[in-house]
Design a protein around this nucleic acid. Sequence first.
DNA 1: GCAAAAGTGTTCATAATACACCCATGT
DNA 2: ACATGGGTGTATTATGAACACTTTTGC
Lengths: 229, 229
Amino acid sequence: MVEEIYQHTRQLVSVDCIIFGYENDELKLLVFKRWIEPFKGELSLLGGWVNHDESVTNAAKRVLKLISGLNDIYLEQVDVFSEVDRDSGGRVISVAYYALMNIDEQNRHLIEHNSATWVSLKNKPKLIFDHDDMVDKALEKLRIKATYDLIGEHLLPEKFTLLQLRKLYNAIFLREFDPGNFRKKVLSLKVIEQLDEKDTFESKRGAFYYRFKKLIQVNYGNQIFRIEN
Amino acid sequence: MVEEIYQHTRQLVSVDCIIFGYENDELKLLVFKRWIEPFKGELSLLGGWVNHDESVTNAAKRVLKLISGLNDIYLEQVDVFSEVDRDSGGRVISVAYYALMNIDEQNRHLIEHNSATWVSLKNKPKLIFDHDDMVDKALEKLRIKATYDLIGEHLLPEKFTLLQLRKLYNAIFLREFDPGNFRKKVLSLKVIEQLDEKDTFESKRGAFYYRFKKLIQVNYGNQIFRIEN
DNA sequence: GCAAAAGTGTTCATAATACACCCATGT
DNA sequence: ACATGGGTGTATTATGAACACTTTTGC
């Protein structure tokens, strides 16, 4: 029997996705031309409603799959945005997620879905509502994530050089990392492994390709240990 | 004009508050006896619905004020809990917040509101739904917060000794901090100031009282204490 | 005197940083 | 030859952790 306490006023709940990509030594953001009022035609993040039969995270995954065709997109929750007047179309509580995707792999789908554009974060256009705040907070979270974990698995190609990885970090933190120190630090983490192949596009001498190790997560009670293959 | 796109199915949205306090060298949690079905009579976190005319954070503040009588309670968002079947009374999306409060100051209000009890985290009873997960995640967030910022302003009395502060940290991290090193580290942060008064209850020699400086703290990512492992 | 906490100083290991230096190769 | 990035090594500095040691005072 459902108590009357469960008959409270209900809210529109949405997800908004801050989709980051990496291209030409720059961190980019995927923005969409809005097709409904209010602010029809203006730029916004990718959004969608949360259905009754799915979790909020699943709503974000569903929406991302819809535009990219991909199932396993890396997602992190950013924050809940719920100011009463944040959406001039109505009272909407929105949960923001940032997603990381490889631009090259996804370009085809996104071009078909032609209301979407990759823009450089350096000259990001104004977005509707509080979407600019969402991007700022997402970038902040991404930077924190990148200080604790080596990211790049979802932004770089399968195999990449240390130069590419360093340039990605340069783009995220807007500073120049020392090549030698960056190399030593990254390799000490033991989360990427060297391949036999070399890249000769970016350097004359040739730089070894690396890839992220395939890690299996084993759950022992409460603690999760990451164990190598 | 409201577009039909804003006529999507709406959700019940709630807040749940993980209220931490500190007493007798232990971190405590405020739990409530549930007065509605399902699970009437069992223990739960403090919860409440989000109204149409308030932000989610304001809903948490409102609910906290209702039980404590206090306006400015320290709050941090923990996470969104939205599994479809997490609440057996219906589909409810819940935003969890942790709150820090000084137990001594609030005891009167809470005793009046006698369905509430402070329990030690060491022998925390089972709570309903996914509230145990909420507590775990809140504690995790609190620990992270305490590594970056010196906390205690909302858990300790106005004036406190370094011993009290250290015991609070011992309780949060469940380990013993070295007295000398703790003192040096804490004082180097320059966020607390020594008073002229001494406490002679806890030590024979007498220990200076300290209090948090009244100023805006800007802390950019320097860790205070390292978490092991 | 002894215990207990206050408070200071010293040593050691580790990690980040700055930077020098040689290697390999395409132009 | 030289510019460019690859890759290694080293000195310096900062920081945390371990711990020794003195001070003060109630019991």
